[in-house]
Design a binder for these strands. Structure first.
Length: 876
RNA sequence: GGGCGGUUGGCGCAAUUGGUUAGCGCGCCUGAUUUACAUUCAGGAGGUUUACAGGUUCAAGUCCUGUACCGCCCACCA
């Protein structure tokens, strides 16, 4: 039966099978269990419109590793899944879909359109969830939430009403980011600035008194001149002092505007005179308020010019710009044009250039919400990994602006504000009110706008829990795993919401992983066509390969540069595991391995090689645990990789090959493989399950086994010493192989190499190879005996000796010298430190922390010297 | 304008609180094959010693100061 195991690992056949098994067996389910500690992660809910990309793959692999690892550590683990309704994005997608039928959303009307969106969601909204399952994500799927679920919507309204009652929500006219394509307001975070190559246009505004004389203003957006209601100069600017208060004639539409003075104007920029368009620029807006200027909005919400734009009515804003420039040129009012780099906001959904636009929107006052959220991070209740993001977070929070939360779209949580059409009062309410609170009339109407999608996402860590019992047990959640792009959008706001609505932090740790980029460092995006599809990789190399490769090349928090070839490493590793396991299975005597391992240990009669590999394995495990606790996933993965491939396979299995039936060897190789599979399971869940199931095992699935801990009865201090000894011997064998040198003038000096153990065929083989190589490299002829032995390794090696023509063996003297130097230096330092620590003055004056630190340093130094001495001895 | 990250062999990246001979993967070169695995094994070349210039230290890729280049984020530069 074992012979039927194929030579190559075939992930396709196994992955779906085991995922189905896990899911159907309810292994992912979590419920409050007082006997266990909880470990909770809430998934960053992907958009319902989402299609799995590498960012998701990385993000969810990390979460799955944490969840599976903690589950094996005996925690009650909940990974809460769900999706986000993604207001604008989803609305755009559905609008595109109905456009194929020749329809606009206005043709359908609000209610019917929303029905269509729901329909779309039913049909396509689970794509991303199916894809996450392909990744092996062990989410508690029956708990899946959607940010528009009934209960969730109620939580959103609740949050709104609470803030409203606290007076933290207000409506105001402000210049906001307006996307003319999506026709909605956006928050500052949703309108990221991008560099553009623009122009600086110098325009002449003639004086009313003397049309020959002009004030030249510089602008990047000449079309806004139609809405100008002043020109501002700096009061200190000598050039313009006499013009302050004068009247200018606005070109093209011949409106009269005044020259005003304000110190905000930078004299060095442009001409020092600036046109003021209070309705189309945030700076000008505040100037307008300050100087009581007229506010003239010249644009329709769709970016076309309106009736105030005179002849330019109905032109698109950029078309109008061109025409206006032409007209100005004709009238000789365009002095010059200079190229000028500028940055403009872009809609984060459709990338259209944002129009700063004056409109009436809803805002949340953020200052009081930010305060406790700043505290929580400063006091270390919430920790960022890597730490450097703390600063980014704090910097944003400390300069936080009020949050524009109203969106002029249809898909989303409608703002729970009701207006009374009679008494004009408005009120917020979770339930639909029957009549006006103030005047008692029934003539009431709900606000037309919906809330920013992030106004629902910020409640995610707690609004996803349906009952109090769960909330109490699983909240605060343990770790949030996410990308740097959404620290402001989401992470910061969740912290504020958690503290505001739950009076507790939403999570203890935030792990920010890097951005996945292509091999040239560009962000992967559809438009660039540089996408590597995770599902394609899964198909070709297997999901485990995808996960492992991704993790092993992602250094903590650094961006990842990907190319398809990178996944070969993971695939090769999976195949290596497969074949090593195949080899072990073929040679495993199941009656032997039932014997308890520790019996051998107590007798201390395991061979050196066995003790060595066990010692290596346990120290590997220890480090892996340390790295996982530290969010250093790549280190953990690479350690397991290196141990398995280059120590367990290349050395251990080769060394025991000839005595593979020896019961000690049987037990050790079986135990290590079985435990290694468990340790690797969080990283490569499928292949580990597949092999584990083939091995003799207890329990129904590897994912329910315990993380392989050190066993006290195996690693006794005594035994550990012996293992060190074993390690030394193996190391020396390595050194021997690596250190062989043939001096160029080598003659017939013979050196005998003898290998201490009798099962060293592999070592001798490689030694022979090496010698051959060296001889060839140094153009040394291989002499008699050895040459003949080339085809007869086995017989030559039988007496465990080979005679070769070379002199030097291992040149370690230099190294030893270096180490001796270091030891001497360290020892003198120890003396210094000891002196310092016995100095009464120092102890009296230095702060306690410093003294402690010095003590620690001293101890470290002592350890270091011990280590160095050990190394030195090891080289002898 | 402010902040952050990066600069280590041909390429992509590691290196815990300063401490063994600076590692790994890919690529390259040489060799091995009655083999668990060619998605393999053994070995080798390749770092003028970690962008540059100083400094601290017994010890610096790691800490400090400065410079250069690359990338990212934030900001109301019309």
């Amino acid at each position: 039966m074992i012979d039927e195991i194929p030579k190559q690992y075939n992930p396709k056949e196994t992955e779906d099978k085991w995922y189905k098994f896990w899911e159907e067996s309810n292994f992912f389910a979590a419920k409050p269990n007082p006997a266990k500690k909880p470990f909770t992660i809430v998934i960053p809910p992907p958009n319902v419109t989402g299609i799995l990309h590498m960012g998701h793959a990385l993000n969810n692999t990390i979460q799955d590793i944490l969840i599976r690892y903690q589950r094996m550590q005996g925690k009650e683990t909940l990974w809460m899944p769900g999706t986000d309704h993604a207001g604008i994005a989803t609305q755009n997608v559905v609008e595109k879909a109905i456009a194929k039928e020749g329809l606009k959303r206005q043709d359908l009307g609000r209610e019917k359109f929303i029905q269509r969106v729901w329909l779309w969601k039913e049909q396509y909204g689970s794509t991303i969830i199916r894809q996450l399952k392909k990744l092996g994500a062990s989410c508690d799927w029956p708990r899946e939430r959607f940010t528009m679920d009934e209960e969730y919507s109620k939580a959103v309204k609740n949050a709104f009403v609470i803030l409203w009652r606290k007076g933290l929500i207000y409506q105001d006219d402000k210049i906001i980011n307006w996307c003319p394509r999506c026709q909605t307001a956006l928050s500052d975070e949703e309108a990221p600035h991008r560099e553009l190559q623009g122009n600086l246009y110098y325009l002449r505004y003639p004086l009313k008194d003397n049309p020959q004389e002009c004030v030249v203003v510089a602008t990047t957006r000449p079309e806004t001149l139609l809405g100008d209601t002043a020109v501002a100069v700096n009061p200190k600017d000598k050039r313009y002092k006499k013009l302050i208060g004068k009247i200018l004639i606005l070109p093209l539409i011949n409106r009269e505007i005044k020259v005003i003075a304000d110190s905000i104007v930078d004299m060095k920029f442009g001409t020092g005179a600036v046109k003021v368009t209070p309705s189309h620029d945030p700076n000008d807006y505040s100037l307008g308020k300050k100087h009581r200027l007229e506010f003239i909005n010249v644009m329709h919400p769709d970016g076309k010019m309106n009736e105030f734009a005179g002849d330019y009515k109905d032109m698109d804003r950029f078309e109008a710009r061109e025409v206006i420039l032409e007209d100005l040129k004709e009238k000789k009012l365009l002095e010059k044009v200079e190229p000028h780099p500028l940055s403009a906001g872009h809609c984060y959904r459709c990338h259209t250039i944002i129009e700063p636009y004056l409109s009436r929107q809803w805002f949340v006052k953020m200052a009081s919400l930010a305060k406790p959220a700043i505290e929580a991070v400063k006091k270390g209740k919430i920790k960022f990994h890597p730490q450097r993001w703390t600063k980014v977070y704090l910097n944003w929070m400390e300069n936080i602006q009020d949050w524009c939360i109203s969106r002029q779209i249809w898909w989303g949580h409608r703002i729970p504000i009701w207006y009374c059409l009679d008494c004009k009062k408005n009120t917020a309410s979770v339930e639909t009110p029957l009549k006006c609170d103030e005047c008692g009339c029934v003539n009431i109407k709900q606000d037309e706008d919906v809330l920013d999608t992030w106004f629902s996402s910020w409640l995610w860590p707690f609004a996803t829990f349906k009952n109090k019992e769960d909330l109490k047990y699983f909240y605060p959640t343990s770790t949030l795993v996410t990308a740097p792009e959404i620290i402001f959008f989401w992470v910061a706001r969740m912290i504020m919401a958690g503290l505001e609505f739950q009076k507790d932090i939403p999570f203890k740790d935030v792990y920010i992983h890097g951005t996945v980029r292509d091999i040239e460092g560009k962000k992967m995006s559809k438009s660039l066509g540089n996408i590597i599809d995770p599902l394609e990789i899964t198909n070709e190399y297997g999901c485990d390969a995808l996960r492992f490769s991704l993790i092993s090349i992602t250094a903590q928090g650094q961006d990842v540069y990907l190319s398809k070839e990178r996944f070969e490493q993971g695939r090769n590793f999976a195949n290596k595991i497969w074949n090593a396991s195949r080899f072990i299975l073929m040679n495993l005597d199941t009656s032997v391995i039932k014997t308890d391992l520790c019996v051998f240990f107590k007798k201390e009669d395991l061979s050196l090689v066995n003790r060595w590999i066990l010692s290596r394995f346990y120290s590997t495990l220890k480090s892996v645990e340390k790295y996982l606790d530290n969010y250093q996933f790549n280190e953990a993965a690479n350690l397991l990789y290196g141990f398995f491939w280059h120590e367990f396979c290349d050395w251990y299995l080769e060394l025991i090959k000839s005595e593979i039936k020896n019961p000690h060897n049987q037990v050790v190789m079986y135990k290590i493989l079985e435990k290694f599979l468990r340790a690797l399971h969080p990283f490569m869940p499928f292949i580990t399950e597949e092999i584990w199931q083939k091995l003799p095992h207890e329990g129904s699935s590897i994912m329910l086994t315990a993380w392989p801990h050190l066993q006290e009865n195996i690693i006794e201090p005594k035994i550990e010493n012996i293992m060190e000894e074993a390690l030394e011997i193996i190391t020396n064998i390595r050194n021997m192989r690596l250190g062989l040198e043939i001096p160029p003038q080598a003659d017939n000096v013979s050196v005998k190499i003898s290998v201490p153990d009798k099962n060293k065929r592999a070592v001798l083989e490689s030694a022979a190879n090496h010698i051959k190589n060296l001889a060839r490299l140094n153009k040394v002829e291989i002499l008699g005996e050895y040459k003949r032995a080339e085809r007869e390794f086995s017989s030559v090696f039988k007496d465990k000796h080979i005679t070769i023509p070379l002199s030097g063996v291992i040149d370690i003297e230099k190294h030893q010298e270096k180490i001796s130097l270091k030891i001497a230096k360290a020892e003198s330092d120890i003396k210094l430190k000891e002196k310092m620590l016995s100095d009464k003055n120092f102890l009296k004056r230095a702060p306690q922390e410093i003294v402690e630190k010095e003590r620690e340093k001293l101890n470290n130094l002592k350890d270091e010297v011990q280590k160095l001495k050990g190394v030195k001895d090891g080289l002898r």
